[in-house]
């Protein structure tokens, strides 16, 4: 629920059960054989590529989608919905150039596809992509959260903001259960945590005006 989009699941590469899905593209039987052979070689090369501690020394997992009864477009959609981080496309034209096409799940659209990646360089390139995707996903989620985290100094403003747009509201609270329960009853927001971090600055409770040791995090929660 942190990363997924309207196309389906988006999984962080370090936890994705399948790291890479290879979709072969062919029409004629002789194309099929040559393309599948190249895909198998590439799949083995990706599995053999050293990953190090990034995956606790486990290999990358590769799914070669060699099902004959589905079209490539259907396969793209399926792996996209399942959140596989990197997709490899390999067809006769790519094979003629000893290359393949790479697509990152979190960067949809044709413009983000990486064309003409030499097959020999593909495993290293894929690992690089996976690592970048892991970092980018975290940064994107952090920016989203930070943008939806605001300091609030009046209860009226609090009530308005918690409805729309919602998010984490940093507000002063007098430390009593009564005030916490009143806020929960009136706004459905609860105290999520009393955050560790920068030194606490004292202030006045937004509800009672009594002294507060520092801001706490309010939000509606699951």
């Amino acid at each position: 629920m942190t990363h997924s989009d309207d196309q389906g699941l988006v999984l962080p590469p370090r936890l994705a059960p399948i790291s890479v899905a290879i979709v072969p593209i062919y029409r004629k039987e002789e194309e099929r054989q040559a393309v599948l052979a190249a895909c198998r070689t590439l799949a083995d090369a990706i599995r053999a590529h050293p990953v190090g501690d990034w995956l606790h020394h486990e290999p990358l997992t590769v799914k070669l989608d060699d099902r004959d009864h589905y079209q490539p477009g259907y396969k793209f959609n399926e792996w996209e919905t399942k959140g596989v981080p990197v997709r490899v496309e390999l067809g006769p034209k790519d094979l003629a150039n000893n290359a393949c096409v790479l697509a990152r799940r979190d960067l949809p659209g044709r413009e983000h596809k990486v064309m003409g990646v030499p097959l020999a360089a593909a495993p290293a390139r894929i690992l690089e992509m996976l690592r970048a995707m892991q970092t980018d996903m975290f940064e994107r989620a952090r920016k989203f959260r930070d943008a939806a985290t605001v300091e609030v100094d009046s209860y009226d403003e609090f009530k308005k903001l918690i409805e729309e747009p919602g998010g984490f509201l940093l507000a002063h609270w007098d430390g009593t259960r009564e005030t916490e329960e009143r806020i929960a009853a009136e706004t459905k927001a609860t105290i999520r945590c009393i955050p560790f971090g920068p030194a606490k600055k004292p202030g006045k409770c937004i509800v009672t005006g009594n002294p507060s040791e520092g801001r706490v995090v309010f939000a509606k929660a699951y």
């Binding site: 747009p165 984490f168 259960r177 916490e180 105290i191 955050p195 971090g197 939000a219 509606k220 699951y222």
Partner: peptide, 27 residues
């Protein structure tokens, strides 16, 4: 950070937690 008294685990002196934000801005 720690939970408030009202939100802590029943029976604990205190509860520490990690809190994430979902895409609908709920915790």
């Amino acid at each position: 950070g720690p939970k408030s008294e009202g939100q802590k685990f029943p029976g604990a002196v205190y509860t520490l937690c990690i809190e994430a934000m979902m895409q609908d801005r709920k915790a």
